[in-house]
């Protein structure tokens, strides 16, 4: 409600009074309740919260894949009622088309936009280079490891040159070591190809390591509990006392939430 006063703010992505619920065998389940969030241009915001707090649902609404019951999401001045190619998304589950080569997967966005074969493959190759996988252009997705597949998915989303990139636990299915490598890779890509990122994760460590800000959500129905700036220079050290303290602080908040449910 207070967000209404900030009409002139230059937010790239604005979530306003978002509410969502659905009926499960006759019972009404409230998933999101009056969520407000602003993300600035080229800002990297991480969202953490207990499982089932609706953070993924929030992202899906922002992508235009689901509709809200109350409120709305505005990205670059446009209300997200349906998916738009200017808003990219990376999913946790494996989302590459298994019958296409890596390059053809990355070229999918320009292909839907009607770009000719030569042009779109050139653009795809450029984005594959961005994630360091150009020598795998002709490979099939099943030939790649889980981490490589997610890098391809990131290249595919960036190939549309999105104004905002929504990431729904993209590294959630990876082992701890690959996860850290991909976090580094993502930061590198983001620093080279600036875009607004909203990154949902289970991992507090990941959120604090990556984000300009960490948004902590409450247990269901999800609300914004805290919005913490991460004023640590990158690359961040995981052993840095300030880093450890911030992680501990967020974990304490989440623990408090867990005891409520």
């Amino acid at each position: 409600m207070e967000a209404a006063g900030q009409m002139t703010s230059g937010a790239a992505l604005r979530i306003e009074g978002l509410g969502k619920g659905f009926s499960l065998s006759g019972r009404r389940i409230e998933v999101l309740n009056d969520v407000d969030l602003e993300v600035g241009h080229n800002e990297f915001v991480c969202v953490v919260g207990p499982s089932g707090c609706g953070k993924s649902t929030m992202l899906r609404i922002a992508a235009g894949l689901e509709t809200a019951c109350a409120g709305r999401v505005v990205i670059h001045g446009r209300h997200m009622r349906a998916p738009r190619p200017e808003v990219g998304m990376v999913f946790q589950e494996y989302s590459l088309l298994p019958w296409r080569t890596v390059l053809e997967n990355v070229a999918l966005g320009p292909e839907f936009a009607g770009l000719g074969r030569g042009g779109r493959l050139e653009r795809a190759r450029e984005h594959l280079r961005l994630v360091g996988l150009e020598e795998f252009a002709a490979a099939m997705p099943h030939e790649l490891s889980g981490g490589m597949r997610q890098r391809v998915a990131i290249a595919r989303a960036l190939c549309n040159r999105p104004q905002a990139l929504l990431m729904d636990e993209p590294f959630g299915a990876l082992d701890a070591y690959t996860r850290i490598l991909l976090q580094k890779e993502l930061l590198k890509v983001w620093q080279r190809r600036r875009t607004t990122i909203v990154f949902v994760t289970h991992s507090v460590d990941e959120a604090v390591w990556l984000g300009d800000r960490v948004v902590v959500m409450s247990a269901r129905p999800g609300r914004v509990l805290a919005d913490l700036p991460v004023a640590l220079p990158r690359p961040r050290g995981r052993a840095d006392p300030a880093f450890v303290a911030l992680v501990a602080r967020v974990l304490e908040m989440l623990e408090g939430e867990a005891s409520l449910t």
Binding site: G64, P83, P85, F91, L108, G109, F112, A113, A157
Partner: peptide, 15 residues
Amino acid sequence: VRGTLVDAARVLGAR
């Protein structure tokens, strides 16, 4: 067909 494939295509701009 996995729902994620359809979602991914929609987000990428598929009609």
